[in-house]
């Protein structure tokens, strides 16, 4: 690696005695304080602040209506319009998941099931929300468009076990998502 020698800036007398910069600094900090107290901080509007600084006061004020389209909340499984669980437990999300939050146990769909031709579905699908980093890789990698990051962000629990979303919970959060993958419909 090349060594870059930096020349220290030559300071003139005014800069050397430091007071000018100090006073400028005081004005800057104070102007921030004043703006903050008046509810006029930069970005206070767009961030829907509570009137002090740019902070939103959480339990009373919610971000929900401001959530952008691309917001990445809790990952969840979705069903298609016919109520079929989209997930075929290919385990790609388990593979890609950077913090290894996903655990899948695949199983064969019994032959008397209406969707027996899909052959495979998850028996267990657990996402450890303590581990999950909401990166959205699972959504990106899913070939069946079965896992989506929903806008739920209040994932709380009193026990570690509460923080593991099982298959049932994941479908509760996920709900139905129509369209996208047609290969399992009647044509096939």
């Amino acid at each position: 690696m090349a060594v870059v020698k930096l020349q220290r800036p030559k300071l003139n007398f005014g800069e050397k005695i430091y007071f000018g910069a100090l006073i400028k600094g005081f004005f800057l900090t104070m102007s921030h304080a004043v703006k903050s107290l008046r509810g006029k901080s930069v970005g206070a509007e767009t961030l829907a602040s509570s009137g002090l600084g740019v902070t939103m006061q959480f339990p009373e004020q919610r971000w929900d209506s401001h959530l952008p389209e691309y917001y990445r909340g809790a990952p969840a499984l979705v069903t298609d319009e016919q109520g079929r669980e989209r997930c075929v437990s290919c385990q790609l999300c388990e593979f890609i998941c950077p913090p290894k939050a996903i655990k899948i146990k695949p199983s064969e769909i019994p032959s008397d099931d209406p969707w027996a031709k899909v052959e495979k579905r998850p028996l267990e699908f657990d996402i450890d929300m303590i581990r999950c980093i909401y990166c959205g890789m699972c959504e990106e990698v899913c070939p069946e468009q079965a896992i989506y990051l929903r806008k739920d962000y209040l994932i709380t629990g009193l026990k570690r076990a509460d923080m593991v979303h099982d298959k049932k919970r994941l479908y509760e959060i996920g709900g139905v998502r129509v369209g996208l993958v047609n290969k399992w419909n009647e044509l096939k």
């Binding site: 385990q91 388990e94 593979f95 695949p106 199983s107 064969e108 052959e119 495979k120």
Partner: peptide, 9 residues
Amino acid sequence: FRFQMRVWF
């Protein structure tokens, strides 16, 4: 081995 585990694991 059917549907037990993906080989990449």
